[in-house]
Write a protein that binds this DNA or RNA. Sequence first.
DNA 1: TGTCCATTTGCAACATTGTTGCATAAAAAG
DNA 2: CTTTTTATGCAACAATGTTGCAAATGGACA
Lengths: 138, 138
Amino acid sequence: MLQMDIMQLFKERRLRATPARVSTLDVLLAAGRALSHHEVEDALADKGERLDRVTLYRTLDFLVEESLAHRLSGEDRTWRFSAQGSHTGHAHPHFRCERCGMTRCLSDLKPAMVVGLPEGYVFQQAELTIRGLCPGCT
Amino acid sequence: MLQMDIMQLFKERRLRATPARVSTLDVLLAAGRALSHHEVEDALADKGERLDRVTLYRTLDFLVEESLAHRLSGEDRTWRFSAQGSHTGHAHPHFRCERCGMTRCLSDLKPAMVVGLPEGYVFQQAELTIRGLCPGCT
DNA sequence: TGTCCATTTGCAACATTGTTGCATAAAAAG
DNA sequence: CTTTTTATGCAACAATGTTGCAAATGGACA
Ligand SMILES: [Mn+2]
Ligand SMILES: [Mn+2]
Ligand SMILES: [Zn+2]
Ligand SMILES: [Zn+2]
């Protein structure tokens, strides 16, 4: 997706198309996987963008708020951000590499293919987490 | 499980049965759910135990290392610890309350019962995470 | 194109969670 | 009781994320 198209996207939604937001969403879209705050920071640096740490945190929150990205918690106590916020509530499976932490959404896979991972991925473990309300909170 | 039995357990395994370890495992066993570092600290305080923050971190790590507990990452960037480390690799489903964060293992449930949660729990979402190695790490 | 105002940004300070180094205390073996 | 090994407490540090506030700026409108 071109930067110009991203700016157009913001304008259609009546959201301020600031450089920080356009560049950040651009990075997420180009990555094709979930990126940590730090990884986004690095990717922005590669493009010659200098962005304050706090601004980036707020920008990522903004994108999630506007459903342009979604956020998932990593095993390493950091948030990861992925574009494609469209698929509702990110209630889809994810893949995380046990060695390097690389995380990507598996939302485009049919259920049958979750068992058979995409080429090149090695299955080690499936973790199923049920979320909801406990007896004390109902 | 009695404190004395816990001490016995350590001795059988040739592990040093220090007050910190016995009390901490006691707290985890009594909880019946996964506790954060902070929650363990509070529970110990209730029992009149004073334990250094760092010592507790190391004690919890020790219990995980010895397979007397297992550790899971929460949505709030904190580790949770649960006794019953016996079930291998904690490759079992968990339940987390979306409101208060209460987390417990569902390891004692048959697969059919995962869909139908125990009485009092409200289902909201199932998240499946596949873990393994990505193409770059194989 | 210039003006204005709500919003965004950068900076400093702070909070939380967890880790490391090292001297001292204590467990368990003999 | 003495010795040896290991665990503990303390201080300092690191990583990740948040909050308050003044200054900059995006976009609407004249
Ligand atoms: Mn996702
Ligand atoms: Mn568990
Ligand atoms: Zn990897
Ligand atoms: Zn609850």
